[in-house]
Design a protein around this nucleic acid. Structure first.
Lengths: 340, 340
DNA sequence: CTGAAAGCGCTTACAG
DNA sequence: CTGAAAGCGCTTACAG
């Protein structure tokens, strides 16, 4: 029954001040890199800090400064879907990069898309974070709308809801990206082109489906052959089966994510289709799923890591009181490999 | 150039005390559910709290109590590998569950396995967290050894290093689990049984390989046919190819994770093997990867979500000053599906 | 450029 | 059962 380990008390500002023979105010100034401090004093303080291995106490700091220096990573998604898609790995990796040089830390707020837990809500709204990064946003996430009124928030992917127009976000032009992928398939001379959409309640799902439909229409082709896959590998496989049942001799499929494309590919091969000879497949993301499966996927690349990094930078700018641009749309491009 | 949104100042303890007509001490007591408070006072305070939508200020609280109420989730792993394996999704989901009822929040500390960032180290050691949960531990993670001397730490998977003997952890008996999977294959009458190991520098990798080797030896079979796959789907595929090249007529393979097994399965099918007729495959984890791929995997199940939950509970107990048991080994069991 | 002092919003003995 | 008071470790005007 020992109580929480009695760690040696870390050095305080006070101690550093004493060691350096200056006031606490002065130490605080050098710690915060603020106003001019004389070189000698700076040196003395720096030395004392090193010697005592001083790290500012976050709690004291945020109590006094009214800044928590914590950013929430809000994930309104089942953990399985979030972790299951390598796209998110890249986003989070980018966010990590973007925050590395700052002194902000990230708290993970996993919550069901339908009903955010009371705990999460209170935490986010209770002044415990300086800002939030929202990833995997669904149309049903009502509570997030309120969030962005109280807190600087940056969305990964354009926000869907009315109330969130005017939010900060980073995204790619999903309509254009999907159009590019579809045009590529058309350019290959394919004529019976199907599509597998993502989630219907997510902007990326909606927009990519629209990009496909528009492009097909513009080319005078039929865009009826569409199924929805929910952005999972399993969903992609299921959708592919449905598509094949409806139209056994389809000759191409545009898939709204690489993970779903991997599922689709495995079904196509099971049913004896040669890729790309019989059926050409174009994915979306260029995530590790594009190169980790049975066939190296031709895909519409979005710069996921950079997008995560940009999200972090955007939020940091907001936190500095700057007025960065609201819509940050990054470039997609075709990456041609073996599947089409 | 507006500065960080001027949110309405949240209610303070002081305000609640005034509203309820009591002292701050008293409000603090009811907020912390501590010592006896008269029913009338309790009611008045509770009402005031509701009315003012009071949430305690975390910074003030931890400054005064010397507890941060934050737990670090330390992931010494490339984000791609971490997010890429559904096993971790389950662990994190479990951790989330285990923490839900507590007032602890989770900060995500992604760091390279080789060299932890200065920022992470200082953060962890600087008194900014009350405890840490370490997941995906490698033998090279030197700095973690120091961690557990300063902080209550719970490892997911038995720790590997000398200095960490005596650490708290939750795990399954990987040797026994692998033995069970291997015995299952032997029981099927297979004779040329290969194995794909995980990472050589991770306990789960080492132990599962050993369970395989021991069981084969005990059955008088040759355990030479082993390759390492690094716990990724790609690695599993690569290992399978190497194995097939060495022994084209192998008739079974024990794979140390479902994700690697999915990679192996896809290679086997590419090379024309029927599963399970030609080659029986047994995986490990029973993660979504077991049922999300081309073939429904027969696998050694470990209760990942429960393991994550247990990790959280363990740490919470430590934080309460209790002395829970150090080694928490949970049960594995065979889940028989289509691949063997 | 530097310091004294107040204050951030809580918890925690200590009295009563 | 309840309150007054000190203190947690910082930042921030305000003087000088």
């Amino acid at each position: 029954m020992t109580s929480p380990e009695p760690r040696p008390a870390p050095a305080t500002l006070e101690a550093v001040a004493a060691a350096a023979g200056v006031s606490r105010s002065t130490v605080s100034r050098v710690v915060n890199g603020s106003t001019r401090v004389s070189p000698e004093v700076l040196a003395a303080v720096t030395e004392a800090i090193e010697a005592l291995r001083y790290t500012p106490n976050r709690a004291a700091r945020s109590l006094a400064s009214r800044q928590t220096k914590v950013i929430a990573l809000v994930v309104p998604e089942e953990s399985g879907k979030f972790f299951g898609d390598p796209y998110f790995a890249s986003i989070v990796e980018g966010i990590g990069k973007g925050l590395e040089q700052s002194d902000y830390v990230l708290t993970l707020q996993l919550t069901s898309p339908a009903a955010p837990s009371e705990k999460v809500t209170r935490y986010l709204l209770g002044g415990n974070v300086d800002g939030a990064l929202v990833v995997s946003h669904h149309s049903g996430d009502h509570f997030l709308a309120g969030l962005s009124h109280t807190l600087p928030v940056v969305f990964g992917g354009r926000p869907l809801r009315q109330e969130e127009q005017g939010s900060y976000f980073v995204d790619v032009d999903n309509v254009a990206g999907a159009a590019m992928g579809t045009r590529y398939l058309i350019g290959l001379g394919r004529e019976r082109i199907a599509a597998i959409g993502g989630a219907r309640d997510m902007p990326a799902g909606i927009d990519r489906a629209e990009g496909f439909a528009r492009t097909m229409a513009a080319a005078g082709l039929d865009a009826e052959l569409t199924a929805w896959g929910d952005f999972t590998m399993l969903g992609g496989a299921r959708a592919m089966r449905a598509l094949l049942d409806r139209q056994p001799n389809l000759d191409a499929v545009f898939v709204a994510s690489d993970l779903m494309a991997a599922g689709a590919v495995s079904v196509l091969r099971q049913r004896g289709r040669l890729i790309p000879e019989d059926v050409a497949v174009v994915g979306f993301d260029d995530s590790p799923a594009a190169t980790g499966g049975e066939v190296m996927l031709t895909t519409v690349r979005q710069p996921s890591v950079e997008m995560g990094e940009r999200m972090a930078q955007l939020l940091l700018a907001l936190l500095r009181g700057e007025k960065p641009q609201r819509e940050n749309v990054m470039q997609t491009r075709m990456v041609v490999r073996d599947s089409a």
